[in-house]
Amino acid sequence: MWRRLVDDLSSEFRVVTPDARGHGESTWDGTAFSIPDLAADVAALVEHLDAGPAHLAALSMGGCTAVALAVRHPTLVGSLTLADTTADYGPDKAVTWAERATKAVSIPRERQLSFQRDRWFSPQFLEEDPAEVDRVSLIFTRTGSEAHAAACRAMGAFDDTSRLSGISAPTRVIVGEDDYATPPDMAATLHHGIAGSDLHVLGGTRHLSLIESAEARELAREHIVAVAART
């Protein structure tokens, strides 16, 4: 998922890319989990690696996880780069994400791809970089449907909006102008809630900005390098 940003950062930093429960190579016992649970997993990893305070670059559900981590474990966070994410999916989130969870397990994963690709990438990117689209699609189809459903329910229950003012780590918020999964108004809420943060809205970009957009990756790298130089 993070290949391109890892390539941009690995000459200067040790880069760790954890998989959430039930995703990638991470195990999962099948029980329900919350976004704060995922944040606790990352906190435990940072502590195990003696890597704190860490610079967190996070996207989508990972951004929710990073917000929850910064709220609950502030000493472990050196900086935040939050891309195409939110602290709250809105008043209808529980119903919406419950429906998504049902579809995650009832529809074959390959048949979900047209919906997902339209959310992930702009039409231009779909046409110009089909190999990268296929690579990300393969990650999706290899993810277990039950884990996907559990993640949907976790996002439907998440709301840390009222706690954003407690985040002290230097924060950059990035969002695609055409991201309708976590649209710019959600990014603006993060920006207004986190003191000292900056906000960058990228034209012609959808939900997976850190994959689609070289500008997004450079904004992430620039922020991490600048904060690291000050600490």
Rank of each mutant, 00 (worst) to 15 (best):
Leu49Thr: 01
Thr65Arg: 01
Leu56Tyr: 06
Ser60Phe: 09
Ala58Asn: 09
Gly62Asp: 11
Cys64His: 04
Ala54Ser: 08
Met61Leu: 15
His55Ser: 09
Ser60His: 08
Leu45Tyr: 01
Ala54Met: 02
Met61Asn: 13
His73Leu: 10
Gly62His: 06
Glu47Leu: 08
Gly62Pro: 11
Thr75Met: 02
Pro53His: 02
Met61Glu: 13
Val67Asp: 08
Val67Ala: 06
Val67Cys: 08
Ala51Leu: 03
Pro53Lys: 02
Gly63Val: 13
Ser60Val: 12
Ala51Glu: 05
Met61Cys: 14
Leu69Ser: 09
Pro74Thr: 00
Asp50Pro: 00
His48Ala: 15
Ala54Asn: 02
Ala51Val: 03
Ala57Trp: 07
Gly63Glu: 11
His48Met: 10
Val67Trp: 07
Gly63Ile: 13
Thr75Glu: 07
Thr75Asn: 06
Pro53Asn: 01
Ala58Tyr: 04
Pro74Asn: 05
Thr75Gln: 06
His48Cys: 11
Leu56Phe: 07
Asp50Leu: 03
Leu45Lys: 01
Leu59Ser: 13
Leu45Ala: 04
Ala68Gln: 10
Gly63Cys: 13
Leu49Glu: 06
Glu47Ile: 00
Thr75Phe: 03
Leu49Ser: 03
Gly63Arg: 05
His55Leu: 01
Leu69Trp: 00
Ala57Thr: 12
Ala58Trp: 06
Gly52Asn: 09
Leu56Ala: 10
Leu56Pro: 03
Leu59Cys: 14
Val67Ile: 14
Gly62Ile: 00
Glu47Val: 00
Thr75Asp: 09
Val67Gln: 06
Met61Ser: 15
Leu69Gln: 09
Ala57Arg: 02
Val67Glu: 08
His73Lys: 11
Gly52Ile: 04
Leu49Arg: 00
Leu59Tyr: 05
Asp50Val: 06
Met61Arg: 10
Ala68Gly: 15
Ala66Asn: 10
Met61Thr: 15
Ala51Ile: 03
Gly52Val: 06
Ala51Trp: 05
Val71Ser: 11
Arg72Ile: 00
Ala70Arg: 03
Thr75Tyr: 03
Ala68Lys: 07
Arg72Ser: 15
Gly63Tyr: 07
Cys64Asn: 10
Leu45Ser: 01
Cys64Glu: 11
Val71Cys: 14
Ala66Phe: 09
Leu49Gly: 02
Arg72Val: 00
Val67Thr: 08
His48Pro: 00
Val46His: 06
